[in-house]
Amino acid sequence: MALAAGFADPVFQSQATFRAVAAAMAEPGHAVALAAGLVPPAGLLATTAAVLLTLVDFETTVWLDDRLARTPEVADWLRFHTGCRITRDTDAADFAVIAEAGEMPPFSHFPQGTAEYPDRSATLVVEVEAMTAAAGQLLTGPGIEGAARFAAIPLPDGFWHAWQENHAAFPLGIDLVFCSPDAVAGLPRSTRPIREG
């Protein structure tokens, strides 16, 4: 079976995708529209595929969750278009791609960075069905004016408790990019979930 194509216009599509991801990380919890403009390999959202083509290359190691690991097209497509290393070892991941958000491993299983180099940490790219700012968890932190709400579906039970622990380790920790079918949203380690009465 032939591999799915990559970007038709890599220079401009990766630039546009990067700006969407950067805007998402700079304004946590705000869903930024992303027209991926590509046909992804089976098992991956087009937005996720665009984010990976934009950020991943031979200098990076990518961890795939169980569902993606069972779909060889995804690893083949990633290796072919980006030259990245694929791993099953969460400890080795620069990026982790999670298609089953409800089943994601604990954040602490991924590299957290070190006190001297907190940037040596993993970025989790998590696929969700939908995101909204109209309801959900109240968030605050850099990039958020006051406070903002954010919800993504599906998320595992205890997600925000786990996120609080990830945030509490700041400047260590992982960062997270949510990909829905038509948008991306960022959750950097600097974002703090607010507990409500």
């Binding site: 890599p10 220079v11 990766s14 630039q15 990067f18 991801v21 950067a22 990380m25 700079a26 934009t54 950020l55 991943v56 290359d57 200098e59 990076t60 907190p118 940037d119 940490s121 970025t123 850099p142 990039g143 700041f170 400047p171 960062d175 950097p188 380690r189 600097s190």
Partner: peptide
């Protein structure tokens, strides 16, 4: 494009860890 990707990854980390 390879250099841009490397710089873009650094920018995302910089945004996630303000001032670092």
């Amino acid at each position: 494009e390879q250099t841009k990707r490397m710089i873009r990854r650094a920018i995302l980390k910089a945004i996630a860890i303000p001032g670092y």
